[in-house]
Amino acid sequence: MKDVGIVSYGAHIPRLRIKSSDIANAWGKNPETITSSLGVIEKSVPSPDQDVATISVEAARAALARCNIDPQDIGAVYVGSESHPYAVKPTGTIVGEAISATPILKVADYEFACKAGTAAIQTCMALVKSEMVDYGIAIGADTSQAAPGDALEYAASAGGAAFIIGREKIIANINETCSFTTDTPDFWRREGRKYPAHGGRFTGAPAYFRHVISNAQNLMGSANSKPEDYNYAVFHQPNGKFPLRVAKMLGFTPDQVKQGLLCPIIGNTYSGSTMLGLASVLDIAEPGNRIFVASYGSGAGSDAFDITVTEFIKEFPHEKAPLVSELIEKKQYVDYSTYAKYRDLLYED
């Protein structure tokens, strides 16, 4: 079996932020209770000229800036999101054109709640392993929707990351991947509706925890590994609490989770969530480091990956694109009324 893994990666997070306390105040909730119960201090907000296409393009361009791959050698672009700008017309076509990878290119958009980006990684892995393409770009990005006043509003944010999957000069080898999927209606958005609905507490035990834990155990079973074998663990982060709790239940320590845990300061970037967490880890990872990754998508499913960082990370030019920490630091706050205007929450006839 040929090696397959990450050749390069790039991230993008919009610059605007809103504090959870400002959202809580707008709805007459206690800011401290909200912030501490969700573990989210602030979240990223897309400006009116940012959407999944622009975030995906910026992330893909960042990934390309860090390697010497001719965009014409990219054979596939898969964009995972639940906020594609068009219901019909693939985001991947816009990304493909904007990175000059068209026209000999396989493209499709994916949707699987928050795990569409990791599903795109698996597709690219298969295409690369079977030698149908030399390189594939897997993107997970969202400008996630939340109804005004809904609990989702405190976390639903925007951002994304792109991973170039290939066979040569791999900075991180993907040793194993597996998925766990069932029909679990914990969270959904009906066709043509603007905002999602969810099952409240039902999104926890039978949904997030069952799928992530089962899949994580399956992965460690097939990789013959234990939590202590990993330097880092990245989990999907719908809020600041779930990833830490699931890590503890599986036997991982908070130290293993810390570098990839971004939700408390940027919110839940949905399809970008696990991908940005992994990007944050790769920003500081060293050769030989082992990374455990488990995404979660409502509906529901989880994709897990066992990853080993290679020697090529040493000469990898991180500096040619912004680090995740730099994207997080570059911020500008907006108040709730500006947020409402930018997110199209105000009624308009």
Binding site: D49, Q50, A53, V57, E58, R61, Y86, A98
Partner: peptide, 15 residues
């Protein structure tokens, strides 16, 4: 790379 404008809620999006 940004969205320049969109043709209402139905039309194309121009980047």
């Amino acid at each position: 790379f940004r969205k320049i404008h969109e043709d209402g809620y139905i039309g194309a999006i121009y980047y």
